[in-house]
Write a protein that binds this DNA or RNA. Structure first.
Length: 472
RNA sequence: CGGGGAUUGGCGCAAUUGGCUAGCGUGCUUGCUUUGGGAGCAAGAGGUUGCAGGUUCGAAUCCUGUAUCCCCGACCA
């Protein structure tokens, strides 16, 4: 009898997603609306992301620091667009220590204001630039509608905040950050996506220009998977932060900020999952290999312990829990998406082999114990590559060119996906397209070639194809 | 925030017009038998029915409020 049955992955992705997150013990609902508890297995994914990215961040000479959770409301009010953008989703502390606070405190939805006020205090010379800091922290955004991982009231992220003497330097960093994110998605998480610029209506509140990594999910919706913002001099102007430059003139620093959150785990889950549950790419998998000795087979258990030791360079677990049959264990680890499972029974020990089952294809192969290390190594690499290739192919197969509004609408009504179409870059036109089709501009891909065309809606001239899609 | 649905042992569900000690499956514990894809038998533990009020001789059931979750919208760097 099958238990742990999941809703259908293909036709009912959102229910599948909720169930798999709960059953695979990644997270659970907390008693506060929109908040979740990230359980150890889910947190281990986040830790692996941190380990991978923190190295890249530090290599770029960015230092980690920590700034307060509470931000004086007065700080927010200094940048008009910024406060307007975030006000609807702010949580505000009005009472502290039993007393009504005179100065209300916002629970940070992002730390630009807090950090830049400190930068202003600390850095007044061109010699202090560039400033490069990052913090790993939690932020709170009081969203009306929430989903596990994808949009929670509180979430974990890293936010990098840098400042430079020139716009050019700052821009190089904006691009560095978004490419560093792409590398993390591609190499660690096996997720493919498109880097591009956000339209003005979709950019960061108070920023100058935003860049995004958009990943296509199996239901044809697009996930804004992380962002990197060129803040221009907007914030340094708002807080009146200047440094003296080489000739003694006052100069406003050019700033950028970039963030990558636990939302990425939601994207990871959907990108690779299947009807049996999670499929976790080896590079990010908290457990890469699970050894399941057939219960009751005593020599197999001994051999398993030996294998565990021989393969200790991998993230590996021996499932010698008593009272579960082999089938129960197989299904449990499949739900959790462990890339490789080594099955070993007394018969295998006698023949000097084991059975290795790969999660992505369900393929089982018999491997001589002597070859196990090299085989496992090759399989893990192969799984990592195949998962990425598969997601890339899916994305490409679901990217469509639309040259007429009818074509555009038809795609949105049927397969959805990324729609590559000309747009005049007029915000009214963009809004009308959203009203008519639900599709929003996702980005102008960085590598979008110059191409003369006509806006898919209004027919006015356009020089690039933008990527449209249904936003997650 | 608007519309719809839900909330009963860990999980999934039941309980006639308001009426007996709130049941069943699964999971959990113990014992024995099993063990190569979700085992069998037996004995147990586990509930003031989301929370707060109200109506009633009597409330899981009716009323009011509230919290959380799901779906659809609006909103959402």
């Amino acid at each position: 009898m099958a238990q742990n049955q999941l809703p259908d992955f293909k036709t009912n992705l959102s229910e599948w997603f909720n169930e798999v997150v709960l059953k695979a013990e990644l997270a659970d609902y907390a008693p506060v609306k929109g908040c979740m508890v990230i359980r150890p297995y889910g947190y281990a994914l986040w830790e692996n992301i941190q380990k991978f990215m923190d190295v890249l961040i530090k290599k770029h000479d960015v230092e980690n620091a920590y700034f307060p959770l509470f931000i004086p409301m007065s700080y927010f009010e200094k940048e008009k667009e910024h406060v307007e953008g975030f006000a609807p989703e702010l949580a505000v502390v009005t009472v502290g220590g039993g007393k009504e606070l005179v100065d209300k405190l916002a629970v940070r939805p992002t730390s630009e204001m807090m950090m830049y006020e400190m930068y202003k205090k600390w850095f007044g010379s061109w010699r202090d630039l560039p400033v490069r800091m990052n913090q790993w922290c939690n932020v709170v955004r009081w969203e009306k509608r929430t989903y596990l991982f994808l949009r929670t009231s509180e979430f974990l992220w890293q936010e990098g905040h840098c400042a430079h003497l020139t716009h050019e330097e700052s821009m190089q960093e904006v691009m560095w950050a978004i490419k560093m994110y792409e590398q993390t998605y591609n190499e660690l998480m096996g997720v493919y996506g498109i880097i591009g610029a956000k339209s003005d209506s979709e950019k960061f509140a108070g920023g100058f220009k935003s860049y995004t990594f958009e990943a296509l999910m199996p239901n044809g919706k697009s996930l804004q998977a992380c962002t990197s913002h060129d803040l221009g001099q907007n914030f340094s102007k708002s807080i009146d932060w200047t440094v003296q430059d080489q000739i003694g003139e006052k100069s406003m620093p050019w700033q950028n900020s970039w963030g990558f959150s636990t939302r990425s785990i939601g994207g990871l889950i959907m990108s690779h999952g299947d009807e049996k549950g999670l499929v976790i790419p080896p590079n990010i998998a908290p457990i890469q290999i699970v050894i399941v000795p057939i219960p009751g087979h005593t020599t197999a258990l001994e051999k398993s312990k030996e294998l565990l030791k021989n393969l200790e360079s991998y993230r590996i677990k021996l499932d010698d829990k008593e009272g579960e049959t082999a089938g129960v264990k197989f299904n449990k680890w499949e739900l959790k998406g462990i890339p490789l499972r080594i099955e070993i029974g007394d018969r295998d020990v006698a023949s000097g082999t084991v059975i290795i089952s790969r999660r992505d294809t369900s393929e089982k192969i018999t491997v001589p114990i002597a070859d196990i290390s090299t085989t496992v190594d090759a399989l893990l690499k192969d799984i990592q590559q195949k998962l990425f290739d598969k997601h890339k192919k899916f994305t490409q197969d679901h990217t469509f060119k639309a040259d007429t509004y009818d074509e555009f609408k038809k795609i949105m009504e049927t397969s959805r996906g990324f729609i590559s179409a000309h747009w005049c870059e007029n915000a009214d036109c963009e809004a009308q397209i959203k009203t008519d089709t639900k599709a929003t501009t996702r980005c102008l891909p960085l590598d979008a070639p110059e191409e003369n065309g006509k806006c898919v809606r209004c027919g006015k001239p356009s020089s690039h194809r933008w990527l449209f899609g249904l936003s997650y």
